[in-house]
């Protein structure tokens, strides 16, 4: 394996330019899973950015939170400001792995790894985060919700490095992060949804429900238009329009869709006056 260890962003972007296909490594919590037996992974070139001190920060200003590429989940969990201004991120961070992962895993890595199950990405996307991509020739900022093109395909080109993530500090009127996994802690998400509402505008972002973490246009429309909702079933059509989850080793498509509908209904019913509250009959949640 080749490893490149720059100590500045400038060096890093130059090396990325020189080494086509080099894989950026920060906390390495995804890259090193089953490392000894993952022989193909040893053949590659890695760009280890973990020593670039100018990337190891996060900062709150009046209008935004900026997460440097080396900012970890734990950095946010541990910051009282984050709890105050971006609780959604804290809630999501706490569901990622366990403490041992939270201290190493980075928000930027979660974005770059492009797993459809990424919890951190869902929360960031719900808060309308922007991603800064830097190459040797300059920087570019793109909305996170346009970052993913397809399964494991992103708008980040081989010579670009995610240098920071910008989260606008527009305090949502309602925000919620729900993760459904196979156990209470340390689980890969089976159904995940991050919800944020600002000025009657809903952002619904799901993970593990599609090839990429994505916003759900039909569900957002259903909410923005204040279409009456009487039961979880009333989300079914929008879910079908937005998402095509799969059966895999961790769950089934039908479970994922049903749970998403139920979670959306129960999360939103208390704060959406146009929902009728009798969606749950004694004879079952989905009748």
């Amino acid at each position: 394996m080749n490893i490149l260890s720059p100590s500045t962003i400038q060096q890093a972007t130059r090396l990325l330019n020189e080494h086509d296909g080099a894989i950026v490594m920060a906390g390495a919590t995804d890259l090193l899973v089953n490392w000894p037996s993952n022989l193909n992974a040893h053949e590659r070139t890695y760009l280890d950015i973990s020593s670039i001190s100018e990337l190891a920060f996060h900062s709150f200003s009046e209008n935004e939170l900026v997460l440097g590429a080396l900012c970890t989940y734990w950095d946010i969990i541990d910051d009282p400001c984050a709890m105050q201004h971006t609780k959604l991120l804290v809630d999501a961070a706490r569901t990622v792995g366990a403490v041992q992962i939270q201290t190493r895993g980075t928000w930027a890595g979660n974005i770059a790894n492009a797993s459809p199950a990424a919890d951190g990405v869902a929360a960031l996307m719900a808060l309308d985060a922007q991603v800064t991509l830097t190459s040797a020739t300059g920087s570019q900022t793109i909305p996170l919700d346009t970052f993913y093109l397809d399964y494991k395909k992103t708008r980040c080109s081989h010579d670009q490095l995610i240098t920071d993530i910008r989260v606008p500090l527009v305090r949502p009127e309602f925000a919620s992060f729900v993760k459904v996994g196979a156990r209470c802690a340390q689980a890969i998400t089976k159904v995940g949804v991050a919800i944020a509402q600002t000025d009657a505008n809903w952002r619904i972002v799901v993970n593990s429900m599609a090839p990429v973490v994505k916003r759900c246009a039909a569900i957002e429309h259903l909410l923005n238009s204040q279409t009456p909702v009487h039961s979880p079933r009333d989300f079914a059509q929008a879910i079908e329009a937005d998402l095509a989850p799969v059966d895999d080793i961790r769950s089934t498509a039908s479970y994922r869709k049903a749970v998403l509908a139920r979670v959306l209904y129960h999360e939103l019913a208390p704060c959406c006056p146009w929902f009728s509250k009798n969606g749950i009959s004694k004879n079952g949640i989905n009748q």
């Binding site: 260890s5 390495a28 899973v33 041992q100 190493r104």
Partner: peptide
């Protein structure tokens, strides 16, 4: 690592300078 818990199976030693 730097006073924080981490899994030693998910860290390359060369990252620890």
């Amino acid at each position: 690592i730097d006073d924080q818990p981490a899994n030693a199976c998910l860290v390359l030693t060369c990252q620890l300078a």
